[in-house]
């Protein structure tokens, strides 16, 4: 009779200790809170993505599983979309990041009307791609205000700024700049101003302080900002259709993917293009992030 209870005690002790050991690793009842979130992300993000991936290897006509990808790259019209997308996305992201550095620099610290100016710079977010497109067509169009002023200033003929590459680039800058600016500003205000003040007491000039202190500290943040701006610019769809020339000069990957999947009802091929989009995007982001690590290490080494 004495053996049984002790066995039970031992077992409950073991159970308790297992629970304890798990809790030490951070596994306890609180983790049940993760279940809805995890189920959600698997069901609505991971599963569709994997489904799309396997679908892209099942071409509509059957046969070679890589047929969709071969078709994409052998057809010049579709293969070119990769370059068209990069040619729009990279300069737009680069411009947005580079332009926000000096502006964010001026906006550091406190001054009257800072909040108003920040709000003004963020307003373009509310415009949305459609109003921006509509406005670009009206403002930069052949008879729009911009070209009227342009001609009044002595130009011979109106500048062609809509229904081509430039229209889409402008719309990417207008919608993308506020995001880049906000991110840069927050990274910049995260840098301790006393570091610069210390350098100033040691006799560093404004330019030296910028080049040797602020910039190296800001650069990793700028790399992230560039990545996010690029993602935004990369998925350009409405503006490429409306202010661009969707059949030619601005036939970007997202247009190709949309048209194949939902207009031609070839979901397999559409998924293949979507997967290629993800791949191209990941490559660019990967390159930037690798560059970021080398950049950051070099900067700290230089300082030491």
């Amino acid at each position: 009779m004495t053996a049984l209870p002790s066995l039970r005690d031992q077992r409950s002790l073991e159970r308790a200790s297992l629970k304890h050991r798990l809790a030490e690793k951070g596994v306890d009842r609180v983790l049940w809170l993760l279940v809805p979130g995890a189920v959600f992300v698997v069901l609505l993000f991971v599963y569709p993505f994997l489904y799309g991936l396997q679908l892209s290897f099942q071409p509509k006509g059957g046969g070679n599983p890589f047929q969709n990808y071969i078709t994409f790259f052998s057809d010049e019209y579709s293969a070119e979309t990769v370059w068209i997308t990069l040619r729009l996305g990279l300069p737009a992201a680069l411009f947005n990041v580079l332009a926000s550095i000096p502006i964010a620099f001026r906006m550091r610290g406190r001054f009257r009307g800072k909040r108003a100016l920040t709000t003004l710079l963020v307003v373009p977010i509310t415009l949305g791609t459609v109003l921006t497109a509509e406005g670009l067509l009206a403002f930069f169009g052949p008879t729009g205000w911009f070209n009227r002023i342009w001609i009044a200033l002595g130009a011979d003929e109106p500048a062609k700024l809509t229904h081509n590459y430039w229209g889409v680039l402008f719309s990417l800058v207008i919608t993308g700049f506020p995001f880049a600016f906000l991110l840069t500003l927050s990274y910049l205000s995260g840098i301790d101003p006393t570091l610069e003040q210390a350098a100033a007491t040691l006799g560093a000039s404004k330019r030296q302080r910028f080049r040797t202190i602020t910039m190296p500290l800001l650069a990793p943040g700028l790399a992230v900002t560039f990545c996010l701006s690029f993602v935004l610019a990369f998925s350009v769809f409405p503006s490429a259709v409306m202010v661009g020339n969707p059949a030619g000069e601005t036939h970007v990957m997202s247009i190709a993917a949309y048209e194949t999947a939902l207009r031609d009802n070839d979901f397999a091929m559409g998924s293949a293009i979507a997967m290629l989009m993800a791949l191209v995007m990941l490559i660019v982001i990967g390159v930037v992030l690798i560059w970021r690590t080398t950049l950051y290490r070099g900067a700290t080494g230089g300082k030491g």
Binding site: Y47, Y51, G52, S235, A257, L262, A274
Partner: peptide, 15 residues
Amino acid sequence: ILMPPMTYGIPLATV
């Protein structure tokens, strides 16, 4: 958040 909506939007719409 990092992926452009179009890349996962098309497989998601398919599903």
